[in-house]
Design a binder for these strands. Structure first.
Lengths: 232, 232
DNA sequence: TGTATAACATATGTATACATTTTGCACATA
DNA sequence: TATGTGCAAAATGTATACATATGTTATACA
């Protein structure tokens, strides 16, 4: 049993961290060998991952990690503010004291990982932080949307917690502070404030993600050295 | 293969029609015998149904049909207008001509079944109609929320297509007309109108569902004939 | 009578052999 | 060169036997 749940969570983490790239095929035989379980429970895990939107399964053609093509990305950026702010409002309205406690402890771990530059941990703890806010909303219908969005969000924000400049580091600190403010708003049952902070948080995250999606172009003189048809 | 997909769709339909009641346990052995497939593919089907929100699976305790307790119902009524109107807007913005054609043919079948009093068919075709609008929205994040809501919606609207009075029949006709108007709005790419019509459609459906959830109380004199502790 | 425990029955979970489908490659043909 | 065909290899799908967990009943004991 331990091996199985370990397999499930490990696959989730590897997909979220893009350790397994979007669109990659997942081979049943090699995976079951790697996790030391037989194909039957592994297939079960793949179906669970498919239900959560981590992978897509095609009849007789196996499972592959859910892809992130450009059309889906457009929709992602379009939809996230609505879902996130709805969740934030509901979380502020419906959270229990116990849940706030859990969220605070996650935030402590997240802040430590983010400040220490533990990229993978920071990204996953950030994921967990937002998942927990989703649970506070007590709305199963929106929670599944949020979860689906967080998969892509975490995959896209890979670079966020791997600072390349002073400005990047400043953004990480700002992100941590925003989390603290969101906790306070939720704890104080202030839906309007929670929404506002969530949208600010989204703006910060979005800017970074757009950079990841559309990085600075390569220097022009390098391109000109090659056959242009191949370079473009 | 045919047996398997038949099993999947049949279980879906039976859950949607409340032929299998919310909360019911699903026994692997008897189900696999009934559908003439072995337990392995049946378990796979149960996991798929779990991913879609039709059933819930608990470790070592099997699958049961997703329950509809009162707290979830509150959330359902709270969330539906937002999800439905968002989907309607996106459908009007993003639909393709081909999809409109499919929707129209579903509507023809639906109208026929609803007018003929084919209760089960009408409910399932109504489900399919709204599912297809969901697909038009081209938004995988909201589509899964819509699907989850439609499961409960279809289960709750069981009585809608089984008219008990002249007023009930009138509501069915009105519902058919609203579908036609929604198709026209989507076809004409008029998001604002589509949202408006969708909310009207929701209001009609909601009133009927609330009656189902909170039916008229039994006549008081009947209750008074029995031991009150047992009757209530 | 009530409770605890052990044995049994039943249901779910896993491994593995076998069946079916897809895929890749060699080779033939236009 | 491009396209098509057939076979072999590899992957996915299914059936079944066995392992493990759960629930129930019977019995012992307080």
């Amino acid at each position: 049993m331990n091996k199985k749940s370990n397999c499930l969570s490990d696959l989730r983490e590897r997909i979220l961290s893009q350790d397994i790239a979007p669109g990659s095929g997942l081979d049943e035989v090699s995976l079951s060998a790697h996790y030391e379980i037989s194909r039957t429970p592994l297939r079960e895990i793949l179906h669970r991952l498919a239900g959560d939107g981590y992978v897509e399964i095609e009849e007789n053609r196996g499972a592959r990690v859910t892809s992130m093509d450009l059309s889906v990305m457009r929709v992602f950026f379009q939809t996230a503010p609505m879902v996130y702010s709805s969740i934030a409002r509901l979380a502020a309205e419906n959270r229990t004291g116990q849940q706030v406690g859990v969220l605070k402890s996650t935030q402590v771990l997240f802040a430590a990982a983010a400040r220490a530059g533990d990229t993978a941990d920071a990204a996953l703890l950030n994921h967990q932080f937002h998942e927990q806010i989703g649970q506070m909303a007590q709305n199963p219908y929106l929670l599944i949307s949020l979860r689906r969005m967080l998969i892509d969000h975490t995959r896209l924000s890979q670079t966020f917690f791997r600072p390349q400049s002073e400005a990047d580091s400043a953004r990480i600190v700002k992100s941590i502070d925003q989390h603290d403010a969101m906790i306070a708003a939720i704890d104080a049952s202030e839906p309007a404030l929670a929404i506002d902070l969530t949208l600010q948080h989204w703006d910060l995250s979005r800017d970074q993600m757009e950079k990841y999606v559309r990085p600075d172009p390569l220097p022009l003189d390098v391109i000109s050295m090659k056959d242009r048809r191949n370079a473009i």
